[in-house]
Design a protein around this nucleic acid. Structure first.
Lengths: 231, 231
DNA sequence: CGAAGTCTTGAATCGAATCAACGGAAGTGG
DNA sequence: CCACTTCCGTTGATTCGATTCAAGACTTCG
């Protein structure tokens, strides 16, 4: 009873190079998870008993500290594996994954992880590489926070989002999911006030167009010049 | 010709649970690397053709950006695997590893990595978990940089170092390798001036004792109170 | 001994947070 | 459909933490 089509996961790099039979086998163990905007796939501190693949939509991953301050760790895009806490030896999810738009994901019980990597070793290699890429990204973020001022950090964040979730429109490159000033603030270690001021200034210069939870990049090279300027 | 004794690597968690024969086999492929203080195991951007295990000493890993600003990514302790760029799919080393004290390491050619994890799958699992732990640490660092002021960040960094490299003395817990104000500044995203001022104030309160490239924690709970204080 | 590296401390400046008030858009419920 | 609430965004004034600028002291080493 093949309820799910293998084309659903064929695009995921985690499963790259696997045969049609392997994909079917993997799919047969998955459960479908539908999330409305604002619903969570998992919450920080919760016992980690499943891992996921996003099929459609966009999730925000946040992390809070003991004092209640929050950062936005990353956005999860379709075909990303997420919530693999178990694979890295964590008993609990280290963050909270919330749907930024209505989303669709697959979920596997943790037990499947060990079985899958035993059967398909390339999965472990892929997972390690994606983890490595995230580590590099996060270290780059530390470098940015330590050495660049707020305006350059915001420019970097907006450019990154435009590249990974941009949709060309006649106005420019639209970041194709709801993105608030607060989100950008939590990504860059700034306040929403500073983000708002900065983007207003950019809008006046024609670099971006923006609205409520909406950002359009009109002049990518101009933003890149801000992001990469020395000094 | 067993020039190296297997006890050298028996303590490394990466090789936990492997048999004596396996350890000997792994050792037989390794090359010994001696580093004087200030020498590097590898440099950022260099083609990554080897991975390493630190046997003795302490290495500083730094990363610079295009503008020349630098951060201290981490200190490598004995029994840590490092320079595993290849395992995470990076062609070049993403940072520079410099000996903070005279050090001794083992080095394997990249080709050994694939062979080793094929023969000893637990090595892949261990590597993934240590990578996961580093990702968590780095995300915590982003959270700190985004939400805590400099004094709390420095307190957190000093406590972490005291826990991972502390040696009990009659004065207090000595951080057992040369650690300059500049190092702490690069770990916390501050300037060496602010670090110096902060530590002078702490010394006056009896929280720490310090000297040239030398830090002793005299009142751990007191420092922890600073690190964890709300606002 | 001179030179280079490390650390300290003061004074001035500045970037971004904080404090504060308000406008507008979207969602909710009667 | 309209009143109400809530969420999101803007903008000004003020404050403050940390950097920057500057000078000098101490340590270690060749």
């Amino acid at each position: 009873m093949a309820r799910l089509d293998r084309s659903l996961i064929a695009g995921a790099s985690a499963f790259a190079g696997l045969s049609a039979e392997a994909l079917d086998e993997i799919l047969s163990r998955a459960e479908i998870l539908r999330l409305l905007k604002g619903e969570t796939a998992f919450r920080q501190g919760e016992k980690a008993d499943r891992f996921f693949l996003l099929l459609h939509g966009r999730l925000r991953v946040t992390r809070v500290n003991a004092q209640g301050a929050q950062i936005l760790v990353r956005f999860i895009a379709p075909n990303d594996l997420f919530g693999v806490a178990m694979a890295i030896g964590a008993a609990a999810y280290p963050g909270t994954a919330t749907a930024a738009t209505e989303s669709l994901a697959l979920a596997w019980p943790n037990a499947s992880w060990a079985e899958l990597i035993a059967t398909y070793p390339s999965l472990a290699v892929q997972a390690m590489q994606s983890l490595g890429a995230r580590l590099q990204d996060t270290q780059d973020r530390v470098l940015e926070l330590s050495t660049r001022n707020v305006e350059r950090r915001i420019a970097g964040a907006v450019l990154k989002l435009a590249r990974q979730a941009g949709r060309k429109t006649d106005e420019g490159v639209l970041i194709d999911f709801p993105l608030s000033r607060q989100d950008l603030a939590e990504m860059t270690g700034a306040t929403l006030h500073t983000v708002s001021r900065t983007m207003s200034a950019w809008e006046a210069k024609g670099l971006v167009a923006c609205g409520r939870q909406r950002v359009v990049v009109r002049d990518e090279p101009g933003l890149a010049a801000i992001a990469n300027s020395d000094e």
